[in-house]
Design a protein around this nucleic acid. Structure first.
Lengths: 205, 205
DNA sequence: CCGCCATACGGACCGCCGGTCCGGATATCT
DNA sequence: AGATATCCGGACCGGCGGTCCGTATGGCGG
């Protein structure tokens, strides 16, 4: 299946280098901490020049962001078009739990990457397309389940807890999914406030 | 005010320089963004050498931390020994709201400082004495009001939302206290779960 | 009042970082 | 094959956080 489209195709060595840089970055991330990933080192390990890294990803933040988006691509698709309970069709609380389970898994498996990304992009984090997507999804689900609350702010609250350093701080070696369960419980506590102030429809025994 | 005690007094020029450095740092913070506060600049504006700054505060993170502690000293005292509802004596929900009101005011007034501090100290943030104090206080209050929940994690959640960048992102110029109100509402929503469970038996956590 | 010593000072110095730039190599199209 | 737009490499830059040590000075015993 050819992939060329648009007005100009990307040169072959360009796409190969992009891959090499990404793999080099994740290797460095795995070996040392997040602050071990410098553009110089990534370039050296990838076997390319520093300028190449910068041209592909714009900045250190862009590189980390690309890595993060690569990791979350499957989740983005599952939310938009996948089967329930992740995708559309299930009740809001179930979708919420399923989403937090998957997002938590990504965060737990990439805590160092998360930390590095947070450090690299300061304020722009909240304009990041990924963040906006997670926030929009959470806002919609929360608004559906608890229309009496400020769903937008609650979504920010839930996302704020996905801090790489906090995750490392709270994750014991023997229970890698503890953080996710805590987040899920928090979300359920939030939904538990008052069931349905308006008994218009929704037949429930 | 008599502050000397301990085994060795601090030299006069030392304490004067400490003050000059702190005031220089806050001036730079107010003028430019948080990334405008470099040790070189602080030293220059304070009229001292770079080494002096480092000797007093250990690192850039230490300098920001000192600034933050200066800002929150009154609140720390009010919590420990002040009159209700901030201090001991009031019911947990009232104390919680009062505490969040004051902490929110500090955060809203020092969002840039908060951002800079978060960026400077990565993981050590959660070992910071200030953080531990806020976390301990919140944990106690939440545990008192909702013994059925994981108070420790909820405390982390509430504190995670005090992100300098997020605050700037959510604070419109005409309503500087909007963030605080949102946090308070979130906390109250958390407490609303179930008023008084059966005091007879207790299911496992 | 004086002289001594611990203490604190200043700023040159270091390695490294993120980011820029441009002459030269190379893939792609005709 | 030749032409050309694209991409590459790595030298280069200003500035950063952090270190170090010769020197100046405050505090104190005499």
């Amino acid at each position: 299946m050819p992939e060329q489209r648009a007005e100009r195709a990307e040169r072959a060595d360009a796409v190969r280098n992009r891959g090499a840089v990404l793999r080099a970055a994740e290797r460095l991330l795995a070996e040392g901490g997040g602050d071990h990933v410098s553009l110089d080192r990534v370039a050296a390990l990838a076997g390319v020049g520093k300028g190449t890294v910068f041209r592909r990803f714009g900045s250190r933040a862009g590189l980390l962001q690309a890595l993060l988006e690569e990791r979350s691509l499957a989740l983005r698709e599952a939310i938009a078009t996948g089967p329930p309970p992740l995708g559309p069709g299930a009740p809001a609380p179930e979708r919420l739990l399923a989403f937090l389970d998957r997002l938590g898994a990504i965060a737990e498996g990439n805590a160092a990457l998360l930390s590095a990304h947070e450090a690299a992009c300061a304020e722009e984090k909240y304009d990041d397309p990924s963040y906006r997507l997670w926030h929009g999804h959470l806002t919609a689900l929360l608004a559906e389940a608890r229309p009496d609350l400020d769903a937008g702010f609650l979504a920010h609250t839930l996302l704020a807890v996905f801090d790489g350093d906090l995750i490392r701080h709270l994750t014991p070696p023997d229970d890698p999914r503890r953080f996710t369960r805590s987040v899920q419980r928090t979300a359920m506590a939030l939904l538990d406030g008052e069931p349905d102030p308006d008994p218009a429809h929704d037949p429930d025994p």
